[in-house]
């Protein structure tokens, strides 16, 4: 179980995360939603240990970060590194077998091409594939659907469901509500660094409507189209 207790993060006087408490259980998928700048990526980076924080984060095992897969919003690829080498590097880093890469290349990526020459969507899929091949217990997927084609979208949704049945803990952020409602067991609404709501599937439709009302409001009329 991944647990956050009074998790806070601030840059000087700018409080990005404000005392977050949450429990994320194995075999469940959690969605984190919020506006740009709400603190989603900061939260993920704190859980991954890439940022310092106040409060407590505990996870399964003595060092759960060694079993944590992190798909970042923007992934860096070294120039002149092939997709295959990237996958090998990620597998070797977690002592996972880097075998049958062609067979496991479910996104049909050109693994022998340089990763830097991939399109945005292909880079996202390569990074996701790397995280999946590592066989982690906890997965943080920051915007996994960003820039990917509709077929891959369907495949990623199926993969997330499979991760759930395998007992993995999955945290996802996405700006596409339908992808979250199709995969998540719970959705946390993050606003100005705080969890303001925890929503269960029965209330997803209401949450979507509420978000539309708040987000759109009279903004379209104000454009004067």
């Amino acid at each position: 179980m991944l647990q956050l207790h009074a998790l806070s993060k601030h840059y000087g006087t700018n409080h990005v995360l404000r005392g977050l408490d949450a429990q994320f259980l194995p075999g469940r998928v959690y969605g984190i939603i919020g506006e740009n700048g709400a603190g989603k990526t900061t939260l993920f980076r704190c859980i991954a240990g890439l940022l310092g924080f106040e409060g407590e984060i505990t996870g399964p095992g003595s060092n759960f970060r060694h079993h944590l897969g992190f798909l970042q919003t923007n992934n860096y690829f070294f120039p002149k590194m092939t997709g295959r080498e990237y996958l090998r590097l990620l597998c070797q880093a977690r002592h996972a077998p880097a075998v049958k890469l062609d067979e496991r290349n479910v996104f049909d990526l050109p693994l022998d091409d340089y990763a830097e020459t991939y399109s945005t969507g292909m880079q996202k899929k390569l990074a996701l594939l790397g995280v999946l091949l590592q066989q982690n217990e906890v997965l943080i997927l920051d915007e996994p659907f960003n820039g990917v084609d509709i077929q891959s979208n369907i495949l990623i949704t199926a993969i997330i469901r499979a991760l759930k049945t395998k007992g993995k803990t999955v945290l996802i952020s996405s700006h596409i509500f339908s992808t979250l409602s199709a995969t998540c067991d719970e959705i946390y609404l993050l606003r100005e660094g705080a969890f303001v709501r925890r929503v269960l599937p029965a209330d997803y439709a209401g949450l979507e409507q509420e978000m539309e009302d708040v987000t759109v409001g009279d903004r379209v009329d104000r454009l004067g189209l």
């Binding site: 002149k80 090998r88 590097l89 340089y114």
Partner: peptide
């Protein structure tokens, strides 16, 4: 720019990325 992107230089360091594999190609 990018015209040579499709050319991939084989390297003996590909099995253990990344420093020598990337550096060798550069």
């Amino acid at each position: 720019v990018g015209g040579r992107a499709s050319l991939k230089l084989p390297t003996p360091f590909s099995r253990q990325p990344f420093e020598f594999a990337v550096g060798f190609r550069r």
